[in-house]
Amino acid sequence: MMKRTIEPFWWSLFGAGGTLAALFIPITLFINGLAIPLGWLAAPDYENVLQMARHPLARTYLFLLISLSFYHWAHRFRFTLYDGLQLKHLNLLIAVICYGGATVGTVAAAYTLINL
């Protein structure tokens, strides 16, 4: 029997995105936002960073981090609108905007990373 609800799918993206974001975004922010600007780490030059980011593993990592963070946002924002702002009559529209937005972000991330 197929389940009657698709919620497990959205929820799994939400959970994966939340876990990844909580774990890796602080690290990324720390390195790029603090450690390098404050000189704790030597600033790599542009070419090096580009080379690094082009590595298939780096591309995959960035893609998952960006895409799943988007879906995490989408799920949370959907319920914020739905419950928080009491817009349940717009349920479908909200879902389309939220998950659609995350999908647009995902496609943009894929496009950017492929053409890096």
Binding site: M1, M2, P8, F9, S12, G15
Partner: peptide, 20 residues
């Protein structure tokens, strides 16, 4: 419950023949 239902959901998706 959400975790076990989600695992079940993917199991049904990937192995539809195994679901009851």
């Amino acid at each position: 419950y959400k975790v076990s239902s989600t695992l079940q959901w993917y199991r049904n998706l990937l192995m539809p023949w195994s679901s009851k």
